[in-house]
Amino acid sequence: MISFKSILLRCYVVLVFAVVFAPIIASFVFSFNSDRFPTVPLGSFTTHWYQQVISDSEFWEAFRNSAITAICTAIVATIIGFSAAYTDYRYQFFGKSVYLALGLLPPTIPLVIFGLAMLAWLSRLGMSGQSYSVFLAHVVMCTPFAMAIIRLRLSQMDESLEAAAWNLGASHWSALRHVVLPFVRPAIISALCLTAAVSFDEFAVAWFVSGLNKTVPVVVLEILQGQVDPRINAIGTFVFLTSMTLVVISQVFLLTRTTKS
């Protein structure tokens, strides 16, 4: 009876993963298929669509934009996220709960509304459609993720640890550098990867504010609007692998907390 139950449970888990990953696997399979339309039976194996993507300057331009935006977003969002989390950890002040609520608010706003608001705000300041527009919007979007991850790690830190450093002659800055930062390092790496992945994947907000500086998801939409193009499968596979790598690294560092703390 026990084994029957556990077999049922396993089947259920496999089914859930199958449903989640089926479209991605299909996209991966068709990216190597010679036929123009995604139909079964498959045609012959080809890397033609990848070659087309690689030789396309518009794609490279978008990839460059996406990569630079993702890297800059990750760094800035993680710095702000760390500062916000550390402020919360170290200090008690009036209105702290409001501060925290505001800090963690952005992900709860629907993306379309967030993108529209960003467009309206940035264009009023004359900053929309610039090379840094998507970056600015993504920092706002990603900072709460970085803050949440680093806060979690800080909450596992023995409260005496920093005081112990002061007690041994460390100034507030050197205690921060030699004790707090090393302690939260796994969370910082995790936050860098996760925010980079979020920024690299993000479409809605980027579509609103990117203007001519298109990122990869925006270009994908433009290709799709024109025609059914198997290049999409190639790009999709590539984007998926990039994001998954970042998310997996992020998770690995997030989970080191129990073994290394």
Binding site: D158, A163, A164, A165, W166, G169, S171, V179, P182
Partner: peptide, 19 residues
């Protein structure tokens, strides 16, 4: 401040640096 005194302490939680 604590940095300016030579009064090292052994903590109840030990507060060793785990890293």
């Amino acid at each position: 401040g604590p940095q300016q005194r030579d009064t090292p302490m052994v903590w109840q939680s030990l507060a060793l640096f785990p890293f």
